[in-house]
Design a protein around this nucleic acid. Structure first.
Lengths: 222, 222
DNA sequence: GAATCCCTTGTGGTTTATCACAAGGGATAG
DNA sequence: CTATCCCTTGTGATAAACCACAAGGGATTC
């Protein structure tokens, strides 16, 4: 079983509950960090002292940093952590329930578990720790659903760019111009329209208003 | 100081922290409820036994009810509570930071305090309890900002209806039809357009795509 | 090299959104 | 009562979104 666990969670109301649940269950050394940068620092230090953490339990959203922390989202934090200690296990423990976001953490960031905070969050977190300790992947009911949804379409960078420009009020023509100026191809007005139409098809949207609303609700253009 | 406090919070990871902070500070009887309906029930029972709660600390979002609880949002909960015990003090303790939503809780629901969960959530919650106990209104830094923002435009039901139809892909003409069928006035296509144009002006949006994106981001059409 | 496929782009036409101008009607102040 | 204001609605024009068809070009296959 894990011997050294780090919990990255900025909400003070949450900390106590998580720490006590985790340390009751695992008997491991449990440290906490309330900022992304602090988390990274602790992981680095532990590595240098040859007493690395086995497991990181991390939230995704962190308070905006009045102290100018460099990293402010769990996404970036996890990316950085993976570069300095690739073998560390990671469980995300968060309120975020959007399927697209959950999915991307498994596919893009190779996390080991995902637990949504909620009624039974702590129970599931304990289950996750057990599973991950045995080299399994853990998904709570909500994230399991998210991963099994077939029609959680992932957007590529090109599509995200177009949609972001759209919600900024850009016209098709202006989007085309922007793409030309930034050397992104394809970039004709016609191609932009084509891609937007494809997206409308994919998401069953009647027009661009509904399309942008849908992808925004799904968290695809955050 | 308050003698009897009820905490409505569905996240189990949060409960422990909140309860211990509140009971350490107040020396009051502190009860908790993980569902909206359960909360309402406890308040009713306490009233009948002539030992009512002095203070309700409530979250806003609650887990969706597999047991078919009637109330699933803090908003509805607070409305109901106010009808059965109008004099109870209410502090909202939640992750929700959208100005429009925060504002509406003070103007429409006459709550006594609003604290955003976060780095110093518990500290602020304790401050809120002190303030509210002395019949003052408490706003945490974030909600204070929200209340002071001048340009947090509130939408009326008519405007919300139109915007909701818009993001469902309705055309102006179809919105007009819908309004006619539901006896909502004004309902001509022209009037619908006019109102949408006014909204675009208010929110500085170039077109309907940007408009709906903005109001959605602000949480005005939830 | 020719046939084929796929992606990109262009053209032109229809529908919808956006906008300017104005007529009608109810409410209100004097 | 009348002048005025504001809200609603209508008309018609322009801009943008939306859509169907097809040409050109690169890559692949045989």
């Amino acid at each position: 079983m894990f011997a050294k666990i780090l919990i990255a969670e900025d909400e003070d109301s949450d900390n106590l509950g998580i720490v006590s649940a985790v340390s009751d269950y695992t008997k491991a050394t449990v440290d906490t960090a309330q900022f992304c940068d602090k988390t990274l620092l602790k992981i680095r230090e532990a590595l240098q002292k040859n007493t690395p953490y086995d497991l990181l339990i991390s939230d995704l959203s962190f308070a905006l940093d009045y102290k100018k922390n460099k990293i402010t989202t769990g996404k970036e934090l996890i990316e950085k952590v993976k570069t300095i200690q690739p073998d560390i296990k990671i469980i995300v423990f968060t309120g975020e329930k959007k399927p697209a976001i959950i999915k991307s953490f498994f596919t893009n960031h190779k996390i080991d578990g995902y637990v949504c905070k909620g009624l039974y969050g702590l129970t599931q977190l304990v289950q996750a720790i057990t599973a991950v300790d045995q080299d399994n992947i853990y998904t709570c009911p909500i994230s399991k659903d998210a991963l099994h949804q077939k029609n959680v379409l992932q957007l590529d960078q090109y599509e995200i760019k177009i949609l972001k420009l759209l919600v900024q009020g850009y016209k098709h023509e202006e989007i085309s111009q922007y793409l030309v100026e930034n050397d992104i191809e394809p970039n004709s007005k016609r191609s932009v329209e084509d891609r937007i139409r494809k997206l409308r098809d994919d998401f069953n949207a009647k027009n661009n208003v509904q399309l942008t609303y849908i992808v925004n609700q799904l968290g695809l253009i955050d």
